[in-house]
Design a binder for these strands. Structure first.
Lengths: 160, 160
DNA sequence: GCTGAAACTGAATAGTT
DNA sequence: AACTATTCAGTTTCAGC
């Protein structure tokens, strides 16, 4: 799982698979200009080394009954390690929380949730806060328009 | 592309493909308890109807040289439609901006960026702001710890 | 480390219940 | 709407360069 720096071919593979995760190895091979064997081997290596962490179908949230996207900024009044641990665990296991980050700055957690309606937002926030024994302050932002959302990283396919 | 409500089998398919987007149709079929033909047909239908919007390999940002995750809250001093349009376009085409949302509340845009270093953050923010002709206020939050990040939605596989 | 071919496994099509 | 059988495409493995 160590280094083995990414060369130009690796980068082209990553760039392509980011866009189409189901592309057959034969077609991927054509795109990067090699035959299938070395390309397959490279993909397996990138998986092994943890560069590629998975393949996922993406689903339209609205079509699954979750049209509401809300960001919550959360600040805890006490910052004991144990408390953070407890809340982290709660957030990790709540599937409606898509993202959660510990941030520096004015607040502690930045949380992103996908919900069916505002009523669900109230329920979920109450549920999360009631699990922690100290007061917390939260600011919420409802998304009016999703301009862009993705995990696709820029891959500059320059030489090794 | 219209409704055709998702039944229990559709939901199990979506749930499975969200977790493993490269799963062969034969194995997907086993998991949902059908033979491959109807499962393949259902997947094609879900793609056609826009429920499944794509398949993507996920890549470790740090391994691609982008260890820094920053959220930026942006407020424009003037809110003309034309100005929003211009900035939206800029953000849409900047690959280091992974997410961008128009939010209600104290600020206008919530932006998520993946960067190589703080120097790149300064450059990018300056670049974005200089493209718009009015003053803007921004607050930035550097992520100290990524607790959770994904696009995986909860799929309750209850009956039709 | 890549190519190319042979053997195998999965996907697609069409016909059946 | 789903199953089965056939055909075809993609994957895997390996000999040779």
């Amino acid at each position: 799982m160590p280094p083995s720096a990414l060369d130009r071919t690796d980068r082209r593979i990553l760039d392509t698979l980011q866009r189409d995760g189901r592309l057959p190895m034969t077609e991927l091979a054509q795109q990067v200009g090699l035959s299938t064997s070395p390309v397959t081997e490279r993909v397996r290596r990138l998986e092994r080394e943890g560069v590629i962490t998975g393949y996922h179908a993406r689903i339209d949230p609205a079509k699954l009954g979750r049209p509401l996207l809300v960001f919550v900024e959360l600040t805890l009044s006490s910052k004991s390690g144990e408390l953070f641990e407890k809340l982290r665990n709660e957030l990790m296991h709540e599937p409606r929380v898509l993202e959660c980050h510990l941030v520096s700055g004015r607040f502690d957690y930045l949380i992103k949730m996908r919900l069916s309606a505002m009523s669900e937002y109230r329920e979920l926030l109450a549920q999360l806060l009631q699990k922690i024994p100290v007061p917390a302050q939260s600011n919420s932002y409802v998304v009016m328009e999703e301009i862009k959302e993705g995990l696709t990283l820029p891959v500059d396919a320059r030489a090794t």
